[in-house]
Amino acid sequence: MQNRIQQAFQKKGKGLLNVYFTAGYPSLHDTVPLIKSLTQAGADLIEIGMPFSDPLADGPVIQASSTAALQNGMNMRVLFQQLEGIRQEVPEAPILLMGYLNPVMQFGVENFCREAAAAGVDGVILPDLPLDDYVAEYQDMFRRYNLRPVFLITPQTAPERIRRIDELTDSFLYLVSGPGTTGGANTQAEGVQEAYFQRIEAMNLRNPRLIGFGIGDKASFQRACQYAEGAIIGSALIRALEGTDDAPAAAARFVSSVLK
């Protein structure tokens, strides 16, 4: 069974923009208005962060937005309530939930899958869910609810492991651009990153690829699109939302600045 993630890649092919923001940030009820304004401004995929107290893979910007969102009262129940009916307003754009395993486990993984599917969510990114645990415990459940897992690949991921990851999903591969947490600058020597992207490209994998971590403006987005079907922007969008009283407008301006 196809889902919206595959359809989005088939339809556009190249230059897809996946934007990440933290649910409940900058204010609790910005979630749905942000999804609408981001898609209207041209974002192709929407990745909603489920805030966690201790986001190990994230840099300071997403840490701060997570803390603020939790203080605003965001939690899994509130998020699923907010997403109710989102598919009437945003029928096509794939929606992914990104977060850490512990809040999902406490909510109940099956409950989580059921609620996510009911809301029209297409994919799930849980960076601290080990591959073996996914296969042993959750793969059947994800399939039953037509939810696609998205797995990360880094410059250190071994080729056979990349092949295995590629077999385990029908969505896209999340290429982490280099060492570091989200929102960091690229500090790699010239050519190192390109060689890594080209090495992955040459593997002729089943899934399309999106490059994330350290992508934050038009130049870095376009550069990433040379090596993959698209890219993911998170921290830079969050920064654009900081201190604004009209988050949807600020989000739309940001997306336009990347795509114009």
Binding site: A57, D128, L129, T154, Q156, T157
Partner: peptide, 9 residues
């Protein structure tokens, strides 16, 4: 070992 891919290797 519940770790992100970046720590796996």
């Amino acid at each position: 070992a519940f770790i992100p891919e970046m720590l796996y290797p």
